[in-house]
Amino acid sequence: MQVSMTVNGEEVTREIEGRLLLVHFLRDVLGLTGTHWGCDTSNCGTCVVWVDEKPVKSCTMLAAMAGGHEVRTVEGLAQNGELDPVQRGFMECHGLQCGFCTPGMMMTARALLNENPDPSPDEIREAISGQICRCTGYATIVRSVRWAAAYEADRAEAPAATTTGGAP
């Protein structure tokens, strides 16, 4: 069957098997390997992407079901070459180690901040509670998201102050 959807702002159309999971469509067909796969039972959340701006586990959805929808993956998180504050927060606060859970964690974190720009640590923990990280122990992930929130609050107050330098 043929499926068309928008992935990271670009229209894509592909011939696929009806049973193909969205996670495999993104990884194997489109080569967007930033989205990972880590379990058979929808427990790990390494596969989280956005469908119409809502985080979903892409292993629980057929690619065909995403037809006509807008999908965003970690590769589409940076805008115009500028890292999202969530990506910067994860680097600044050691929110990742092996990096396997990280794309999914960041997609959830970005969605959370879009809805709630000043989440408490408990709200952040709740938001990522369907996702597993085996490396970080979560505290630095919570801190990373808090970094992004604080950064965005500062920026909202003083939007103009930018400096130039090397990309991190």
Binding site: R27, D28, G31, L32, T33, G34, T35, H36, W37, T73, V74, E75, L77, A78, L83, Q87, R88, F90, M91, E92, H94, L96, G99, F100, T102, P103, M106, A167, P168
Partner: peptide, 21 residues
């Protein structure tokens, strides 16, 4: 010091075995 490997990971550009095509 911030980690040197992180810029690729936060961009989804890690290269794990299953990413090898």
């Amino acid at each position: 010091m911030l980690r040197k490997e992180d810029p690729r990971f936060v961009r989804g550009r890690g290269n794990y075995v299953d990413d090898v095509q």
